[in-house]
């Protein structure tokens, strides 16, 4: 693992029980991700994209092999240790936004900072900055139900970025958005990647997302079929 390498996946296999047998979602994956990458795992449905992202995000365990995240092996990390690593160093963006419905835009973006026990002043400054990145400073008091899909996803981006994590994992972030909104949030994420050197890893089969990626990893039937740099 070199200095800029932030994630390393070695011989990763993930099997799920299915009926009397097993389904192999990932089969001997080997990948490395460096700091500041803007990469995506692409492939058809059922190819193992989300499973790979879940293991990198320490939300799931590999059946075999290992995922080393910022120097910590997924095999050695306890459930609590994984939670702490996510809390400090990772942000998540989901297809269905997963915003906390009873919280306002400000409170949703503030949530990760509450877990980090930051002071009120620090939190306010960071949240307003994050909402400025995504262009939602005028909606801080709105609840998710009052927002459009694109706005909800921008709140999710602000929530993922507010603590300036090293890694952001985005699972089909544009699947519920129209073209304009998709391009808008992708441009936002691209800009944040440039400015903050955050590593972005997408799981997607959306061409709009793929067109923004600098590295494209194609998964087919749980195996890496192609790993290419598409943009410098």
């Amino acid at each position: 693992m070199n200095n800029s390498e932030i994630i390393s996946v070695k011989d990763l296999t993930k099997k799920f029980p299915m009926g009397m047998g097993e389904f192999t979602a990932l089969n001997g994956i080997n990948l490395e991700f460096s700091k500041g990458e803007f990469s995506g795992v692409v492939g058809p449905s059922g190819s193992g994209k989300t499973t790979l992202l879940n293991i990198i995000g320490l939300l799931d365990n590999p059946s075999d092999g290992d995922a080393i995240i910022m120097g910590s092996s997924s095999r050695d990390l306890s459930v609590r240790g994984a939670a702490l690593l996510r809390r400090k160093h990772m942000g998540f963006i989901f297809q269905t936004y997963n915003l906390l419905t009873v919280y306002t835009v400000f409170e949703n973006a503030e949530f990760p900072l509450l877990l980090l026990r930051m002071t009120v002043g620090e939190r306010k400054k960071a949240v307003l900055e994050a909402l400025e990145w995504v262009g939602l400073t005028d909606k801080i008091k709105s609840k998710p139900a009052q927002l459009s899909g694109g706005e909800c996803q921008r709140v999710a981006i602000a929530r993922a970025m507010v603590k300036r994590p090293e890694i952001v994992l985005a699972d089909e972030p544009t699947a519920n958005l129209d073209a304009d909104n998709s391009h808008h949030i992708l441009r936002t994420m691209e800009k944040l990647n440039h400015e903050l050197k955050t590593t972005f890893i997408f799981a997607t089969h959306d061409d709009k997302v793929i067109s923004y990626l600098r590295r494209k990893i194609t998964l087919i039937d749980g195996k890496v079929s192609r790993d290419e740099i598409v943009k410098q």
Binding site: G57, V79, L84, R87, F92
Partner: peptide, 12 residues
Amino acid sequence: KEIGTYVALGMT
């Protein structure tokens, strides 16, 4: 879903 979100955001 909310529980999953809490865990993803770093709550034990």
